[in-house]
Amino acid sequence: MTPTAPAFAEPTDAVADAPHVEYLSSAEQFMLSQARAGNPRALRQFYDEHQAQVRGHLYRLLGPDSEIDDLVQTVFARAFIALPSFRGNSTLSTWLYRITTNTTHNLLRQRFRRGRVKAAFQWWLSGRAAQLQASQSDVRDEAGRVLQHLAPDLREVFVFYHYEGLTLQEIAQILDKPLSTIGDRLTRARKRLHELVTTT
């Protein structure tokens, strides 16, 4: 049967390197070798095994958002393209988190800049009364709104640590930052969230 999957990236030197066995099971190595060759079944298996992780992370990071489905497609399309260059220096989930973060980071920054101006204007316009009125809404929605007020760099670390359950070392690997930076961001994120929750 002819696969309908599009042609993938040309093999590079990295392809020849066998992925590190310590991070990948034999089944994952086999699936990866098939997926790199453009085998649709292997690609579908890759998608099936990880789509919930990507979708869940985007949902936790962005909240209910109409663009999540679009972002999931973008993340997997980029992952399929990058498969030949994956050297197995991390687990597949960590590697996918990194792609997801790179895909969403600019979007988060854009939204945060726009949202910050808008929120400040609304605060000035309606004052405390509007906030009190908003407090009648669902607690979960309010928690989501509070999280949106967190700067993107801090939000990413907070979501990875508290929602995804990753360690600081894993987060440092995903974001490609020093461990101390990640720890600092987590502390700042908690402090900022505390301020946001206790002042509203």
Binding site: R60, G63, P64, H162, Y163, L193, T200
Partner: peptide, 17 residues
Amino acid sequence: AVMDAVYRGPDPAASGV
């Protein structure tokens, strides 16, 4: 309640397909 919701995060069940 809000703090608890913030630390608990969104409901993962809402992200299925």
